[in-house]
Amino acid sequence: MMKGLGGLGDMTKMMKAAKEMQDKMQQMQQDLERITVTGESGAGLVKATCTAKGELTALDIDPSIFQPSEKEVVEDLILAAIKDAQRRAQDRMQSEMSRITEAMGLPAGMKLPF
Rank of each mutant, 00 (worst) to 15 (best):
E55V: 02
E20Q: 04
A18V: 03
G6R: 06
K111A: 13
G4C: 04
Q26R: 10
V73T: 13
K53E: 08
Q30P: 00
T57K: 09
M21F: 04
P113N: 14
E102K: 13
P107S: 06
I78K: 05
G6F: 09
D62V: 13
G39I: 05
K53Y: 00
K71L: 14
K83F: 01
D60S: 13
G39S: 10
K53V: 02
D84N: 14
A18Y: 04
K24V: 01
C50S: 08
Q94D: 14
L8N: 08
S98E: 14
G7L: 14
P63S: 15
F66A: 15
L77G: 06
T101H: 01
S41C: 15
L45G: 12
E96C: 05
P107G: 02
E102I: 03
T57H: 00
V46C: 07
R87W: 02
E96W: 03
M1K: 08
M1Q: 12
V74S: 06
I82W: 00
A52Y: 00
Q94A: 14
A58P: 10
R88N: 06
E102D: 09
R87L: 08
A43W: 08
Q30V: 06
L59T: 10
V37I: 11
A43H: 13
I65V: 15
P107C: 09
I65G: 07
L112E: 05
D76V: 03
Q30I: 05
S95K: 06
Q86I: 03
K83R: 15
K19N: 03
T101L: 01
I65H: 11
I65S: 12
S98Y: 06
L59I: 13
S95L: 08
C50A: 11
Q90S: 05
L79G: 09
G6T: 11
K111Q: 15
D84T: 12
E33Q: 14
S41H: 10
